[in-house]
């Protein structure tokens, strides 16, 4: 037996309303995001076909943040995530592993060679016969080409590198494929998305599909889109991967969670990514 979700959230909204009074300055849901006065981000879009019966419009998490947090993402200098992009750029150019190679030796300047990459991951890899996240692809490069040690799936080296690789795709629409051999992973991810977990018996959908835009305590619930990942969070002042965020969400349902990099989270990332097909790649974005 679980607590009724609607009852819990209703109570939470009431408490939030009391705490916040009029609730001004929470978020400007109509705001438009232009980064560096140059990159026009699509922060709201028509829902992709597979969500046609569920949602009319998909929204970037940016839409739900406060004015101050929104402003941090409008300029790459104000966005603290970029100091970690700089750190990753040093790693990109540094040789590592027995082969004595750096990322740059094969891929030159990531601002040219990595255009469009973030937008299509996770992606089926025919040669390896597996669905790969960007993290898995980076580790495949490290072990296969560089003969270097794998990076920890959600460690800082890895999350910083995924942020760097995302930068040249900013403003491009997320366009993750889920047909062919990827489909069975997509179905598995979808099942996870709608499966209630934990003592609170909450599925992803209970908050991010049924209640986006509502308050959960003092937090403004988003649609749980991952087009902005990795994100710089004000909470922990570092870049956070999608899998780390999934883990945090599932832990908050008071469940044992899957591990970052697990088959379950890879499948969930594929499914959640396709819920955002049509939104712009924003990473590294800024959230609370």
């Amino acid at each position: 037996m679980g607590i009724s979700l609607r009852g819990t959230l209703g109570l939470a909204s009431a408490v939030a309303a009391l705490t916040l009074g009029t609730g001004t300055a929470i978020a400007d849901e109509e705001a438009e995001l232009v980064v560096n006065e140059e990159i026009e981000m699509v922060v709201r879009a028509e829902a992709p076909d597979h969500l046609a019966d569920t949602l009319d419009t998909i929204y970037s998490g940016w839409v739900f943040r406060s004015d101050e947090t929104q402003a941090l993402q409008a300029d790459d200098f104000d966005n603290p995530g970029f100091v970690f992009v700089d750190v990753a750029m040093d790693a990109w150019n540094a040789a590592d592993g027995a082969a004595g190679k750096s990322c740059a030796d094969c891929h030159n300047d990531p601002m040219d060679s990595m255009v469009g990459v973030r937008a299509v991951y996770p992606k089926w890899n025919d040669e390896a016969g597996e669905l790969r996240t960007l993290e898995m692809q980076i580790n495949a490069c490290r072990t296969g080409q560089m003969e270097a040690e794998e990076w920890k799936y959600d460690g800082s080296d890895m999350v910083n590198m995924t942020a760097l690789i995302s930068v040249p795709s900013r403003g491009l629409p997320v366009n993750v494929a889920y047909d062919g051999p990827a489909q069975e992973y997509w179905e598995m991810g979808k099942e996870l998305y709608y499966t209630r977990t934990g003592q609170l018996e909450l599925a992803c959908a209970n908050c991010h599909e049924d209640h986006y835009g509502d308050m959960i305590r003092a937090d403004h619930l988003s649609q749980g889109q991952i087009n902005g990942f990795p994100v710089y969070r004000l909470k922990n002042a570092k870049l956070n991967s999608a899998h780390a965020r999934f883990k945090g969400c599932i832990r908050d349902t008071r469940a044992h969670t899957y591990k970052p990099g697990s088959a379950e989270f890879v499948a969930l990332e594929l499914y959640v990514a396709t819920r955002g097909n049509g939104l712009s790649v924003e990473a590294p974005s800024v959230r609370n």
Binding site: F77, F82, V83, D86, V87, S156
Partner: peptide
């Protein structure tokens, strides 16, 4: 470890 400055001028 990992201290890196950024400056915009």
């Amino acid at each position: 470890k990992g201290v890196k400055p950024r400056v915009k001028v």
